[in-house]
Amino acid sequence: MADEHQLIEKLEQNIATAILGKPEPIQLSLVSLLAGGHLLVEDAPGVGKTSLAKSIAKSLSCDFKRLQFTPDMLPSDILGSNVFLPNRGEFEFRPGPIFTNVLLADEINRTTPRTQSALLEAMSEGQVSVEGLTHTLPTPFFVLATQNPFEFEGTYPLPENQLDRFMCCIEIGYPARDVEKNVLINHREGEPGDKLQSVITAEQLRHLQASVRAVKVEDSLNDYILEIVHATRSHEQLHLGVSTRGAITLYRAVQGLAFIEGRSYAVPDDVKRLVLPVLAHRIVVKGVLHEGRRDRAKAVLRQILSKTPVPA
């Protein structure tokens, strides 16, 4: 694993030159990428959501497309459409921007739920269906979406089935004062992310993703994951617990984190670190619509973690 771990370190360091003082969001982003999931970054405007996404994309030698989501966007603007060719008397499919390796869905919750739902099949199955025909997406395929908090003007809350397609939902937060001073200096000559060079090819990324699946997860850890998941389904403060897809996603994320840290096996601390970013956006707290929903969800998950016995 030494060579593979060097590749991951190079990737982390490359992103960290543009995103200063945020090792945790960077690592969680790579967990989603290497475990074959998708990433949602939710935070206030201006804290670096799009910069993180662009830095990850530029660090990969893969096809990259960015979509700025707006209220008037249609599903065909994402998926593509069939165009009639009069000279040939037939329709031809023109692929949309979703046909790429890395898709930055910027401010995804500024478009309508109808358009948001265009991503569901792509994120789950790596394919899209247009007018009865199925089109396979390239591999690897990674959706990196950003969204503003729900209480901001002009946002449409992502439905639960859309949220469930994201492996991790993370926040970036404001930087510490000394780090922010370095950010100012770093931006003296322009956007640092624009100067990044790719450090991993698409083939290397596919190899790393395949290696993650080989990480060993002991049966006691499977039981630990399921204890946490089942506790969400019977908790008195929760209206909706974690689905089976959520349990599988946590399992995959645990493999990804262990691999990033240079281990061929997972440990209980991997599960503990990932419960909040992987599960908090999948559960629905009773009596809460959207405001403060994830904070309440995190509090419930911390309570469940504190009560769930850790395997020896």
Rank of each mutant, 00 (worst) to 15 (best):
R66I: 06
L184Y: 05
L74A: 12
L40K: 05
S211C: 15
A210Q: 14
M73T: 02
L208S: 08
Q204N: 15
R213H: 05
Y265A: 15
V47G: 08
N182S: 15
M73K: 05
F64E: 10
N222G: 09
K181M: 12
R233W: 01
R296N: 15
L28N: 03
P25L: 05
R252S: 11
L158N: 04
E261G: 14
P277S: 11
F64Y: 09
F84T: 12
A258H: 03
K286P: 08
C169L: 15
I56F: 04
K195Q: 15
I225S: 01
L133Q: 14
K49M: 10
K216E: 14
L250Q: 02
E189G: 13
T201G: 13
V41W: 05
L279Y: 01
I15K: 03
Q209W: 01
M1R: 10
G36Y: 11
E236F: 03
H281F: 12
Q13T: 13
K65Q: 07
P277M: 04
G126L: 03
P113M: 13
D3R: 02
R114I: 04
L60H: 00
A247Y: 00
L34T: 09
L104C: 10
T111S: 06
I225C: 05
E203D: 15
C62E: 08
V217N: 00
S198A: 15
G154H: 09
A122Q: 05
A258K: 00
P149V: 05
Q197D: 15
A299G: 07
A202D: 12
T112W: 03
G262C: 12
E160A: 14
A57Q: 07
R66Q: 06
M123I: 13
E9R: 11
V199T: 11
V83D: 01
V300A: 03
R302T: 07
L208C: 14
T134M: 09
L28D: 07
E160M: 10
V199W: 03
Y265V: 15
L7V: 14
P97W: 01
T111G: 04
R94Y: 09
E90R: 05
F91C: 14
P113S: 12
N87W: 08
F166A: 13
G193V: 07
P192Y: 04
D72A: 05
P25D: 04
Y224W: 08
L163P: 11
I228Q: 00
P309V: 12
L137H: 04
I56M: 03
P175M: 10
A176C: 00
A297W: 07
I283K: 10
L120I: 12
C168V: 11
A57L: 04
G132I: 02
E24Y: 09
L104Y: 03
L289F: 13
D164E: 07
D106P: 00
V128P: 09
K58C: 12
E9T: 02
K298Y: 12
I200T: 12
L196A: 14
Q27V: 06
K216F: 11
D219Q: 11
V183T: 05
G48E: 06
K10Q: 09
P45L: 01
A231Q: 02
I248K: 07
F166I: 07
H38L: 15
P113C: 14
P192M: 12
G48I: 01
S220P: 09
R114H: 00
S55L: 06
I185V: 14
A176G: 07
E218T: 01
A202L: 08
Q255Y: 03
P86D: 11
V271H: 04
T308K: 10
D63W: 03
P113Q: 10
E121S: 08
V267E: 13
F152T: 04
S61W: 00
P157Y: 00
L274H: 05
Q116T: 01
